[in-house]
Write a protein that binds this DNA or RNA. Structure first.
Lengths: 219, 219
DNA sequence: TTTATTATTTAGATTTGTCTAAATAATATT
DNA sequence: AATATTATTTAGACAAATCTAAATAATAAA
């Protein structure tokens, strides 16, 4: 199956929005892809034709088995390139997404597998997201919650769920990155803020809004 | 200037065919790009509009200063990726061209420069072709001739000018690659063949046709 | 220098991926 | 349940990159 870049991007976004089982809505997909609902409908017809999605008019979209397989390949390539950019070319955390967005479309299994090997077959990418293996198998993610819902006091940052440049840059400025250890000092209900302390730095206060996007696990 | 992949491919091929100064012909460019002359004419109009080429109806094509600059950027990216694939991912000589053909279209100066640095700022690629630096400057290639015109008896392979998969695979099978040292045993005029001996291997006979595409310098 | 051949361009069509505006279906509200 | 709102699809258009077939220009041959 030879997919165009546009097709790959749609498959990837459907995968992202589906989160397990949920049906993906035309509007949501259009928003995610920064395009128009009418365009999504067009593409849905094509992808249904290719048997990559299940789709009935007005009923939303889900990936077929083949579609899921394709999506995992794309995600694998994306996350491996992110590893490469961060580990080997010293890009920072928040810079790599856009570049990986382009590199992921070089569809060569041999290249992908050699790259993986070169990187030491990593199982999570710089954002903490798991990397599918050559068969599309995902390592089960370690138990993690968003920072605003964490119980434990001592935590490690494992991922950032919102990949907006703004947030990533903000965190970077605060000295927070993947693997950063932090402590919850206090959680103020009355103004929805959380006071945290990053190892070796003065305590800072962040909003629950931001904390929602920071994934952590107990250390 | 934001170029599409199709535009970049045209610019690159014009650069390749131009070889210094020569005017590039519509037909030659169509052949090189595996497309039709009519399509080349269409693209020529567009590239002229963008001031990347000089072009007058029926008069052929040459790169403008801007066009040459763009071409060198593309060539730089192509050759750096080839280095990466061979040096870091252990691809063989003849496998890398097609992959680099895709990777070269990721247009990020930062990525390109980081990649170069990561590779130790190489000045020639695995085919022996010089890599333009960040300013588009080409290291002057060392004195080399094609194997069929070599005077010296002991030679090193520095490049292969025809990058067809068939030829590269053929050479690989014969144990000839970049840096291979060989000796000319005899040059038979009457059947246009050359007998050569690769270090540590029995002598073999190749046609002048093939020898024309193997670049060598005296060792 | 005519004529034949080859090279190049034009005209018009096609495919892919997108869009806007209008029509229709699904859902929510009164 | 009738109506209003929102979501989705259809119809028709457009731009990019390509193609084929026909027309025209340049070059080679007679």
């Amino acid at each position: 199956m030879n997919l165009s870049i546009a097709e790959e991007n749609h498959i990837k976004s459907i995968y992202k929005l589906q989160e397990g089982d949920a049906v993906v809505t035309t509007n949501a997909l259009a928003y995610e892809l920064d395009t128009k609902p009418a365009s999504v409908t067009d593409m849905a017809k094509k992808l249904k034709e290719k048997k990559l999605i299940e789709y009935e008019k007005y009923k939303g979209i889900t990936l077929s088995a083949d579609g899921r397989k394709a999506a995992l390949q794309i995600v694998r390539r994306h996350r491996l390139w992110e590893c490469f950019l961060v580990d080997k070319l010293s890009f920072s955390w928040e810079e790599v997404h856009e570049l990986a967005e382009e590199l992921e479309h070089v569809r060569s299994e041999k290249l992908t597998n050699r790259l993986s090997e070169f990187l030491g077959n990593p199982v999570i990418d710089p954002h903490g997201d798991p990397i599918p293996d050559a068969n599309g198998k995902l390592a089960k993610p370690r138990p993690q919650t968003s920072l605003d819902q964490a119980n434990a006091k001592r935590l490690v940052v494992t991922a950032v769920s919102d990949q907006s440049t703004a947030l990533l840059a903000f965190l970077n400025a605060k000295g927070i990155k993947l693997g950063t250890q932090l402590e919850i000092v206090a959680h103020y209900e009355y103004d929805n803020s959380i006071e945290i302390k990053v190892k070796g730095q003065p305590a800072i206060t962040i909003s629950e809004q931001v904390a929602k996007n920071i994934m952590v696990r107990p250390v």
